[in-house]
Each structure stands twice: as C-alpha cells, then as structure tokens.
Design a protein around this nucleic acid. Structure first.
Length: 626
DNA sequence: ATAGGGTTAG
C-alpha cells in the first residue's frame, strides 16, 4: 500500500495518449476549455466557465483513454488540490462503465493530502472492484495516519467485507462502528445486516435489524433477502403481508417484489405470486424489465406457462433474460419443442444468446429427449457463438445422453471436459445408470464420487436401486450395511404446500403437523383406494425402507405423500394441489401421484430439484422417463 | 463546503 507515499507527476503518460486516441467530444470540449482558460478578461468568470466545462467533460467520459486525456488536462490547467475536480474525477474513474479502479488509484496517489471525501470515494471504488481488500488496507492506513472517518467510511468497508465474505473483518468493523458511536446510522446498519446475511449469520443479521431505530423499505428488503438466503422462505410471505397490511410503516417497492416473487417461485405458490403481480400493476411498476422477467420465471416455474407467456408477450422491451426465462420455463414444463421454437424466435429477434440461454435450450432438449437437437446446439454454441461450455452445459448433455441410454458416450463426454467434473455431473450419470440398470458403470461413477469425497446418502441409494433393479439382493444388503455402519447422513426430504399464504412443511414420517392424525387416516384411505386402481408401492427403491426397519413403522411415508394427503384433506374437491420438494421425487411417489390424479380427479403439480411434474388423469408430463 | 452510502431478474 504505497498510495500515499508517492507524489509523482507522470504527466508524460497522459500527454502522449492525447493525440493517439481521438474522441470528437473530448477534443471539442478541450478546445473550448483552452479558449476559456486563456481568456484574459474577467478571470473569475472565465475560470468558472472553464471549471464547468471540465466538470461536464469528466461527466461525459467513459473510456480509459478519455480519462487519461482529462487527467492530463487537469494537471496542465489546474491544481489537484481543487477537491471538487478531483472528487468528480475519482468518482468517474471508479464508476464509469469500465470501472477503472487502478486508474482512480493512480490519480488518488497524486493527491498530496486527500480529504475525507476523497478517501471515502477511493474506498468505495475498491469495495465494488475486484480487489475489495485494498479498501480495507486504505482504511487501516487512514486510521494509522489519524484521519477522521465517518459512517460512510465504515459502510464502504463493510461492503468490502461482504464482497470478500470475511466474517472476521466485518466483525472488526462492527466493533469500530460501536466504538465510534455510529450505530444509529440506518444505512450503515442495513449494510451490516446484509453483511451478516451473506456470511450466513442469519441470527446476527436479525439482531442488527432489531436494534435499528427505524426501518425503511430497504431494511425490510435486506431482511427478506436474508430469509431467502437462510432458508426461511416461508417467512418472506408473512413479511410481505405485513408490509401491505401497513404493519411495517413502509410499503413494498420493486426490489421487495423481486424478492417475494423468488420466494413464491421456490415454494411453488402460484396464488401468492398472482397477488404480488397485482400489487406490481397497482404500483405501476409495469415497465420494470427485472420485475417482468421475474414474473415470467415465477409463473412458468409454478406451472402456469400460459400466464408466463402473457407477461412475456406484453413486454415492450425484452432482453436476453426475458427470452432465457421463457425458454427454461418451457423446458421445465416439458415443452422442449416449444423451447427450441422460442430460442429460434429469439435469434430472429436479433437477441444474442448467453450462457444461461444455452443452459435453458440444452435442458429443454434433455427434458424432452431431443438428442440430435441437443448435440447440434451444444456444438453450435462454441462454433457459432464462441462460448465455452460450462459445467451446467455439460450437465445437461450428460443428462441428455444418459437418459437416452448412450451411457458410454456420456462417460466419455465427462472425461473429455477441460475443467474438473463436479459431483453434480457424476450424480446425473448415476441417475442415468439407474434408469438403464447399468451396474458396472454405476459402480465406477460411485468410485469417482468417492474420489471427490462428495458421495451423499442419495448416491448410495441410487446404487442400491441399480442393484435391486437387476435383482442383486446380496449387494443391496451390502450397501445397506455399509450405509448403516458408516452412519451416512441422509439429506432430509422436505415438501411444502401453501394454503392461504400459510406454508405447511413436511418431512419424512412427519409427526409435527397439527392435523397429523387426520393426515395419516387420509393416507390409509388414499392407499386403499389407489390399490384398487392398480397402484403398487415400489418399496424396493425406497430410502425410507431403512426407517421402516429401524423405527418399526407399519408404513413409512415420504414427505410428498404426506403433503398430498394434506392437500386432499384441506382443499375442496377439484382444487389443484401444488407442492415443492427440495430433492428429487422418487419413482414410488411419482406413481402415487399419477394414480391419485385420476382416482381423486385432482391436478397435482410437484416441483422438485430439476423439473416440474404435472399429474392429471393418471398421466405425468414427464411420463416417459419413469 | 464540495461527493458519497444499504437491497435488485433468467
């Protein structure tokens, strides 16, 4: 950190570049500036005119070459000690579209005695750059020099810590804030909250929130984003209700809506999402592209593709995100052909696809079994669009090839990846091995997962499923024994169903719900009804068979079944049952929902990790994969 | 004195 040490004047750098890069705006303004500066009469007005010109010159510059030219101009015509000029320059340098932090730093180092404002601007620039730690160094330098700091200085430092996810650094700044007596500054506390939230310290974030003297919309927004990040999605809906109910002393704004829509998406609550949509229209946020895009995602991921499309159609300006949201929405809903149509329409509209567009297109192909098309797009993305495939793209391709039974090809693709394959990719292939009962490859994949030290209970269950599907019961017992001995923890499956804005959460063999007796009675009844209709429980593939043995339950239920039973119980006949599940729905629950949809004449929509399952009249939208 | 702060779509 030698920013303050040097007081050099490297004018030559700036001057030499002046002639080489030409910019009409800059040269015109420079001419005016020189003329104004040179005018002998009334020096005060002339110089203030020149100053205005210089300021507007700074304001209009976006490229580093412009900055250099202006830098030279500043050095030639005025002193660096005129703070407004240097401040504006610093801000511009740091926040121009290109974000020239290094340039700002060089300029900063030439200021002999930076003011508090100049320090702050420089720290702010660092906090948003790729080297936020430099901001903290500068802050320490300030304290070493005995410079005064204000809440702004701290808030930029907090921002740096947030970006670095440095818990200890942030805690230190927090301590300083308290010592400096700045703990009643609302904006500073909001930044601090966000910091704790990003570091997954939800409780500490909430503690800061509780201590805030007053809370504005942004503070509530940060609380909501904290809930989202820390898996308290259900509380997000409650906060939104409280806000529109006037209990928070402030109204939701566009950012609130973005957050709440995200919550609706992950909980699969179409109804609440619609409510947010209405609110958006009421508040006149109709033209906000981010909100529209978020609505497209919410509607499509809640299984309401027609509404998603209506929002899309109604947009005056559509960007890549809008198109990608539509494409991956169609993909999730099993409408692969239409997703490809949308992609082609996007190209016709001269919108350039990016990485996430390709993820959507490729997942559309894999969800709909369009092998040739998928291969074509995969090759095309590097050839025609110069994009290197990332892990997501490879993941889609492995899924596509694997489901189609081209297991060896999928394996080769993984081995050909330039980057190291992650556990997700191997897991995808393992899933395909289960579908196609490929024992040898399944074992090899599990070996790769063990290599990565990333094997989870679910992986062993998949392997177990492969063995049981070929009738190798010895191996099944062996794997079970291994799992039991090593005490591998299973990720608890969790299903939510939301009724009237209240989120009901179920886990395997849940005994926590108020209406548990009713639910279990209902499950028994549903079970016997479905049996008549030809439903056969597929216990061999079930993870909960373990708990069946261990806990001695007569029957063990996945959270999906519990939530479905509750849905049948708590909603009038004919109502669509919407669930969200954190894992991947199993074959048995899938069959269960399928038969139930026809016997009880209910539409059931389940969203799991990767896709949306529409069950209706005994069929599922992704029927062919089970 | 001058400028400057927190949350944000696929």
């Amino acid at each position: 950190m030698k920013l303050l040490a040097s007081l050099n004047s490297n004018r030559s750098v700036s001057l030499s570049s002046f002639s080489s890069s030409s910019s009409s705006l800059v040269s015109v303004l420079s001419t005016v500036l020189d003329a104004g500066h040179a005018r002998p009469a009334s020096p005060s007005s002339g110089s203030s005119g020149a100053r205005e010109h210089l300021l507007s010159l700074i304001k209009s510059c976006a490229h580093e070459s412009h900055l250099r030219q202006i830098h030279a101009r500043i050095l030639r015509t005025r002193s660096l000690e005129e703070p407004i000029i240097s401040l504006r320059f610093l801000s511009r340098a740091a926040f121009s579209p290109a974000g020239h932090v290094t340039y700002a730093a060089r300029f900063f180092s030439q200021i002999r005695k930076p003011s508090l404002a100049e320090f702050n601007t420089m720290i702010r620039a660092y906090s948003r750059s790729d080297s936020p730690e430099e901001g903290l160094y500068l802050y320490r330098e300030m304290r070493r020099l005995g410079e005064r700091t204000d809440p702004l200085t701290s808030s930029f430092c907090i921002k740096s810590c947030t970006k670095m996810e440095s818990l200890t650094g942030g805690r230190q700044i927090h301590g300083r804030i308290v010592r400096d007596g700045h703990q009643s500054d609302n904006l500073l506390l909001t930044a601090l909250m966000d910091f704790y939230s990003v570091c997954y310290k939800g409780e500490e974030a909430c503690a800061v929130f509780d201590e805030m003297p007053e809370r504005d919309t942004v503070a509530w927004n940060v609380l909501i984003s904290c809930y989202l990040r820390n898996r308290r999605t259900r509380d997000v809906l409650a906060v939104f209700d409280a806000m529109i109910g006037g209990e928070c002393g402030c109204q939701p704004d566009d950012v609130t809506c973005l957050h709440v829509l995200q919550a609706c998406t992950s909980l699969n609550v179409l109804e609440f999402g619609g409510k947010v949509h209405e609110y958006i229209e009421e508040r006149g946020y109709g033209d906000a592209v981010k909100l529209r895009n978020s609505l497209i995602t919410m509607y499509s991921r809640c299984g309401s593709m027609d509404k998603a499309f209506m929002v899309f159609k109604g947009m005056r300006v559509k960007n890549v995100v809008s198109w990608s949201a539509l494409i991956s929405g169609l993909a999730m809903n099993g409408k692969g052909r239409e997703a490809i149509e949308a992609y082609l329409a996007m190209l016709r509209a001269n919108v350039v696809p990016d990485d996430q567009t390709f993820t959507g297109v490729l997942s559309a192909c894999s969800h709909s079994g369009l092998v040739d098309e998928g291969m074509l797009f995969f090759e095309g993305m590097s050839k025609d669009f110069k994009r290197t495939p990332n892990v997501h793209h490879y993941g889609c391709m492995v899924d596509l090839l694997g489901r189609a039974g081209l297991l060896d090809q999928a394996y080769e693709l993984i081995m050909s990846m330039s980057s190291k394959p992650d556990s997700m990719i191997w897991r995808t292939l393992l899933g395909a091995c289960r579908i196609h009962r490929h024992v040898a490859l399944g074992e090899r994949v599990l070996w790769h997962l063990t290599e990565l030290k990333a094997q989870e209970a679910g992986d062993y269950v998949l392997l177990l499923n492969i063995y049981s599907s070929v009738g190798d019961w010895e191996k099944v017992t062996e794997v079970r024994k291994f799992m039991k001995e090593t005490g591998i923890q299973t990720t608890p499956g969790c299903t939510t169903i939301t009724l009237n804005g209240i989120v009901h959460e179920f886990t395997v063999d849940d005994v926590l719900h108020l209406r548990q007796n009713e639910i279990y009675t209902m499950l028994d009844e549903i079970g016997s009804q479905l049996k008549i209709a030809g439903y056969v429980p597929e216990i061999s593939s079930e993870l909960h068979n373990l708990s069946y043995e261990e806990k001695g339950y007569r029957l063990s239920y996945h959270s999906e079944k519990l939530a479905i039973a509750f849905g049948v119980l708590a909603t009038p006949p004919g109502t669509t049952i919407r669930l969200a599940n954190n894992l991947r729905i199993c074959v048995d629950c899938h069959n269960f929902a399928k038969v139930l949809s026809s016997v009880y004449d209910r539409m059931v929509i389940i969203r799991d990790r990767s896709r949306l399952h529409h069950f209706q009249g005994g069929h599922c939208s992704c029927n062919d994969y089970w």
